[in-house]
């Protein structure tokens, strides 16, 4: 995992992805810091930093002596935030690439229609 941003940010985003796709359901328990560190081969302090970010955002909460859990409603909140960012994070690059390839917006829409499972 590496796109040039700090590893802890990337880890936080990975976990968010997991919450969104249901890997970590609401009120479900998350793996421990050490498990995340071992799995991604990163420093545990880095993993802690990533998780702390989610805790601060209220997406994850700690139960002392038990572990970390996904907060109720975390998925909905993440979905809302991601939808808000969707235009910037996905549409803009899509349009840029389409322009490079000489695709018109109409052609692009057709392509999307064609590939959308009905």
């Amino acid at each position: 995992m590496d796109d040039g941003r700090p590893i802890f940010l990337q880890l936080a985003e990975r976990i968010e992805d997991g919450i969104i796709d249901g890997t970590y359901p609401d009120e479900g328990q998350l793996p421990s810091i050490n498990e995340f560190a071992a799995f991604h081969r990163i420093n545990p302090a880095t993993a802690l930093k990533g998780i702390t970010r989610l805790v601060d955002a209220g997406l994850v909460y700690k139960r002392r002596g038990v572990g970390m859990f996904v907060a109720a409603g975390a998925r909905d909140r993440l979905l809302a935030a991601r939808r808000e960012r969707f235009a910037d994070s996905h549409i803009a690059p899509l349009l840029a690439e389409a322009q490079t390839l000489g695709l018109t917006t109409d052609e692009l829409i057709d392509l999307i229609r064609k590939d959308t499972p009905s």
């Binding site: 941003r5 994070s89 690059p93 840029a96 690439e97 490079t100």
Partner: peptide
């Protein structure tokens, strides 16, 4: 980052 991506650039790690 968004600007860069929109300009057709790829942003990667060092």
């Amino acid at each position: 980052r968004v600007t860069a991506t929109a300009a057709g650039l790829e942003v990667g790690p060092v």
